[in-house]
């Protein structure tokens, strides 16, 4: 219960930050993708099933605030959370660079996947050049934000799972 609440709070904060503060603070015209960041970080910290559930929640939250067909981002982030969770099992190094690199790669692949699905559903009108540019820029932006958000989210989730009950 406490976990769900913490997670909901993290997602809500990410959405509000994404649409207010980071709408004004752009990197060469691109906003960060904070919900991708949250999904990847949780997947890294807690594994594939947590990643998938968080991704699903993040995606649904974002989709219902967007004007495009609902469910695309949920689909993207569910798969992204799962994939990052699975990949993290094979990473043995404890380097602090791991989250940064994973966030950058995950965001890049996730945004591209999202745009391709939107394109298949007839929703994307932007050019390929623009899509790739935005995917790269938001990946870099997310990577820059990781050193700030990773410890923050880790502390929040650890505080809420002091007494581990379930394992989702």
């Amino acid at each position: 219960m406490r976990r769900t609440l913490t997670l909901a709070l993290v997602i809500l904060t990410a959405i509000v930050l994404q649409t207010t503060v980071f709408a004004d603070v752009r990197l060469l015209g691109a906003k960060p993708e904070l919900l991708y960041l949250v999904t990847i970080v949780i997947a890294l910290l807690e594994g594939s099933s947590s990643g998938a559930v968080t991704g699903f929640a993040c995606g649904m939250a974002q989709d219902f605030l967007l004007n495009q067909p609902k469910g695309i981002t949920a689909l993207t982030l569910t798969l992204l959370g799962y994939a990052v969770g699975v990949t993290s099992q094979y990473i043995v190094t404890q380097s602090a660079l791991v989250p940064v690199v994973m966030v950058a790669l995950g965001t890049l692949v996730g945004v591209l996947f999202n745009r391709v699905v939107a394109l298949l559903l007839g929703q994307a009108e932007a050019s390929a050049y623009f899509v790739v540019r935005i995917a790269l820029l938001s990946a870099v932006y997310n990577a820059i934000l990781t050193p700030i958000f990773f410890p923050l989210i880790r502390r929040l989730t650890q505080a809420s799972t002091k007494q581990r009950v379930g394992r989702w």
Partner: peptide, 10 residues
């Protein structure tokens, strides 16, 4: 104006 769109493509 209280916020902008969530996503980069709109």
């Amino acid at each position: 104006v209280i916020g902008s769109g969530v996503d980069n493509s709109e």
